[in-house]
C-alpha cells in the first residue's frame, strides 16, 4: 500500500506540487494524467525516493521513503528513457540488471522478454533498437523480478496498436496477481480501459477524478 500525505515539492522557489494526498492499494491499476510539465514524473520520483519532498511524506507498506527506507522494496520502475547500455544486446542488459539482486534465472528473463514481445535470442545491440523495442525492453526489466509495485511513466509510447493491446492485457493480468501499478499516460483510452482510479495533475495539485472526467 502506498500513501502520499501532504506532499509538496519545490525546486528552489518554484512550486511543482502542493498538498498531494493519494492512497493506492495492491492489485489495482492507477492512472496519472496531466499536461506536459504538470509534475507527473516529479510525483513518481518522489514516490520512488529519487526526490525528497519539500514537505509531507510517502509511505510504502508502512515505511516512510527517505527515512525508514531509501526506495520501496520490490519496485519495478520505468521512468523517462531507460538507460540501457547501448553496445549490448537486450538480453545482456537485462542479465546485467538481474545480477544485482541475483534472484531470477535466465529462463525468467527470457519469459519477461517474450511477454513484452521481444525475442531473447536477438543479438542486436540496444543502440539499433527502435523506440518501441526499447520501450518493450524497459517494461521487461520492470516486470522481470516480479515486483509488487510497478511505476511506469508513459509505457505505451512508441508501441504499435498490437503492442499497446498486449501491454494492456499484461498489466491487467499483473494487477490480478496483486501488483499495484501506477502508470502515467497521455492517452484517454489507456486510462479508461485500464485504470480503476485516476489522478489528475493540474495547477500543482493532484486530484482523484472519475474516469469520465479525464
Amino acid at each position: 500500500m502506498v500513501k502520499v500525505e501532504g506532499l509538496e515539492k519545490k525546486f528552489r522557489e518554484e512550486i511543482i506540487l502542493t498538498d498531494v494526498n493519494m492512497s493506492m492499494e495492491q492489485g489495482k491499476i492507477y492512472g496519472l494524467v496531466g499536461m506536459n510539465g504538470s509534475g507527473k514524473t516529479v510525483l513518481m520520483k518522489c514516490i520512488c525516493g529519487f526526490l525528497q519532498p519539500t514537505k509531507g511524506s510517502v509511505t510504502v507498506d508502512g515505511k516512510v521513503i527517505g527515512k525508514d527506507i531509501d526506495f520501496p522494496q520490490s519496485l519495478g520502475l520505468m521512468i523517462e528513457t531507460p538507460g540501457f547500455i547501448p553496445y549490448m544486446s537486450g538480453k545482456s542488459n537485462l542479465k546485467n540488471l538481474a545480477l544485482i539482486r541475483n534472484q531470477i534465472s535466465d529462463k525468467e528473463i527470457d519469459e519477461a522478454m517474450e511477454l513484452v514481445g521481444l525475442d531473447p535470442k536477438l543479438k542486436k545491440r540496444v543502440s539499433k533498437y527502435s523506440l518501441g523495442m526499447r520501450q518493450r525492453l524497459g517494461i521487461a526489466q520492470a516486470i522481470m523480478e516480479h515486483p509488487r509495485l510497478l511505476i511506469l511513466d508513459e509505457p505505451f509510447n512508441g508501441l504499435d496498436v498490437q503492442g499497446v493491446e498486449d501491454m494492456r492485457k499484461l498489466f491487467s493480468r499483473l494487477a490480478g496477481e496483486g501488483v499495484m501499478i501506477l502508470l502515467a499516460s497521455h492517452y484517454d483510452e489507456d486510462i479508461r480501459t485500464l485504470c480503476e482510479d485516476v489522478y489528475l495533475v493540474r495547477d500543482h495539485h493532484v486530484t482523484k477524478k472519475e474516469k469520465e472526467e479525464t
Partner: peptide
C-alpha cells in the same frame, strides 16, 4: 550516473 540509472538504482537495497 543517476539520471540514466533509475532502473538499476532501485535494485540495490539503498543508495
Amino acid at each position: 550516473k543517476e539520471e540514466d540509472s533509475y532502473m538499476m538504482i532501485v535494485r540495490y537495497p539503498d543508495f
